[in-house]
């Protein structure tokens, strides 16, 4: 199957470095989330991958070849970059016809995709009359037109309604399960956590992390447990005796940091402390991400002071 390989990729726009010696690979069969704040270089990297912008140095290849060398590229790689790529005066169906003709994709695929993306009823209306969500669906239909092995989507859930967001989640999972290489950029952490297996995180054009989602969260944020009891005094004494880092809030809920419910439950049962509630607080991707970027900001600040 086809991997994406980015090696030592750099792109400067008039002295400003948008992508800075970036190296990573995207494997087939997984959904890889491409994260970073706005301006981190995600969209630039995608444009460099597609040969739309010329790299200052380094290489970006798909299946070992630069995109510009692919014959009938839409049959190998499908991309959604911007929702405003379609001409407002053309119908959605005609927009797809143009793309299909350029890569000799059978016309039957057009109606298949219009049905799959839920655009069949509006296919003969002009794109100008579409909502942002409908344009986004048209962009996704365009990306999948050639039944590509590699799918690159830039912020695909932009403008989609809740139903659309659930749909795209299922679609991404299915594409990966079919063995395709799926790279999805987003700045929405919790949304990305619902579909991604692997993460590539950028900050100011540089690679901050390239790791499975689970490892990323566990490495950066320790879990916590929530406890409620009728006997706060005994709980406090018990937790203190076992060296647990715990705090009680105004509502009487204790948060025990770095604790797992399996351990804490046994401890409370053994000490016969009455328990009203015991829950694990799972760390979110957002927390892990913020932890990472905070560390990064601190590093940069120190760096500047030293310099």
């Amino acid at each position: 199957m086809t991997s994406i390989e980015v090696h030592d990729l750099t792109k400067e726009y008039g002295g400003r470095r948008a992508v800075d010696h970036l190296t990573f690979a995207v494997r087939p069969g997984l959904v890889t989330g491409f994260l970073g704040p706005n301006g981190a270089g995600k969209s630039t990297t995608l444009r460099l991958l597609l040969g739309l912008d010329h790299a200052t140095s380094g290489t970006a290849t798909i299946g070992g070849r630069p995109y510009s060398e692919l014959r009938a590229p839409l049959r190998r790689v499908g991309a959604l970059l911007d929702a405003d790529a379609a001409h407002g005066s053309r119908t959605g169906r005609d927009h797809l016809r143009v793309l299909a003709a350029s890569n000799r994709i059978p016309a039957g695929r057009i109606d298949e995709l219009l049905a799959e993306t839920g655009l069949a009823p509006v296919a003969r209306r002009r794109v100008r009359t579409y909502s942002l969500g409908m344009r986004q669906r048209l962009g996704i239909a365009a990306a999948l037109l050639g039944d590509p092995e590699v799918v690159l989507l830039d912020e695909p859930s932009n403008g989609l309604d809740p139903e659309g967001i659930v749909w795209i989640r299922g679609l991404l999972r299915r594409l990966a399960a079919e063995g395709r290489t799926v790279l999805v950029s987003s700045h929405l952490m919790n949304e990305t956590a619902t579909f991604a297996d692997h993460l590539i995180v950028l900050g100011r054009g540089r690679l901050l992390a390239d790791t499975p989602v689970r490892d990323f969260i566990h490495a950066r944020v320790r879990p916590a447990a929530r406890v409620r009891t009728t006997d706060d005094e005994r709980l406090a004494e018990l937790l203190a005796r076992h060296g647990q880092d715990a705090a009680r809030d105004a509502d009487g809920v204790w948060t025990v940091r770095h604790a797992r419910v399996e351990d804490l439950g046994r401890l409370l049962a053994d000490a016969a402390v009455p328990v009203l509630e015991l829950t694990q607080e799972e760390a979110t991707l957002e927390e892990a991400y913020l932890d990472l970027t905070a560390a990064e900001a601190e590093f940069t600040a120190q760096h500047h002071q030293e310099a």
Binding site: R47, P73, D82, A85
Partner: peptide
């Protein structure tokens, strides 16, 4: 000029990189 509206040219050139 219709190719220079929005991101039309990007889509065009991703379909036809030559």
């Amino acid at each position: 000029s219709s190719e220079f509206r929005g991101a039309a040219l990007r889509l065009t050139l991703s379909a036809v990189p030559d």
